[in-house]
Amino acid sequence: MARYLLRRFVFLLVSLALASVVLFALLRLLPGDPANALTSVGASPEQIAAARHSIGSDQPLPEQFTHWLGQLVSGDLGTSFVSTLPVGPEVASRLDLTIPLTLAAFVLAVLIAVPAGFVAAYKRHTWYGALLSGVSQLGIAVPVFWLGMILVAVFALNAGWLPAGGFPPDGWAVPGEAVRSLVLPVVTIALVMSASLIRYVRSATLDVLGSDYLRTARALGSSFGQAMWRHGLRNASVPVVSVLGIELASTLLGAVVVESVFALPGLGSMLVTGIAQHDYPVVQGVLFVSTLAVLLIGFAADLVQRVIDPRLRDRLSGGTR
């Protein structure tokens, strides 16, 4: 296990290094000059050159890259071109919103999807099993912004139960308000996310239900519940965990649309503004942090899978435990 962990960790570092190169290079391929955003109209060529110099975009690319890498290693995400404020603290303050939003939506989605997916599979011949299956199919087709707008119209504009958007300026210092303002966004993301999760849980359950080992377990005298608990659940959860990892990772940045609909100051809206303004350090900072998060989530999902399924341990680590 230790060897596996070490190898997995090295893999993580290499991925991160590769990601940073790609990130840096792709941004430089975009047309447009960040110095434009920094100078007023009518700026002389000297002023534009000075602006380029001040942000370092007049340096050769390899130098810019090593500079950025050096900063990263020392834990500094750089300074925004546009606001000239450090990126790190702002990313951190945005994560205050994005992490709770993502995690809450994720947990809610799992709480909806696992029972619903199981019922959709186990009771597939009943009308409600079929209905669950159909609704989840429909749910996949629903755009997240549309659902958000409908929820706002119903629960905020008409009923007035919840705020239509925004996040209290004092953030978590007023926990009640903060939670209230996240209810609709969390439900929006969770509903859309659970729609596709239900499909995975359902098909994983169907596989297990039709499996020989379950039949054997029943034949050996286990009740259906016991057989499911001892054998079915473990087997079914392996593919689901990897899907969960992917869903969690994509929600982290995928919340951008929801953040826009609900006017939330999260990581996604910071990224969008950064792109629009050619603010390389902001875009790089946000993407680097989210890449790191995605890799860590993938790492965690792998570990969980190995804990659940001993076969993975044996195969991948050459038999060492």
């Binding site: 707008m149 504009l157 239509a164 925004g166 826009s260 609909v261 006017a263 503004t273």
Partner: peptide, 20 residues
């Protein structure tokens, strides 16, 4: 006075409609 910032005009109008 508090200036509240929105990126989306619809979200801004909703804020006015809900007294935010």
């Amino acid at each position: 006075v508090v200036f509240h910032y929105y990126k989306d005009a619809t979200a801004l109008n909703n804020a006015l409609l809900t007294d935010a």
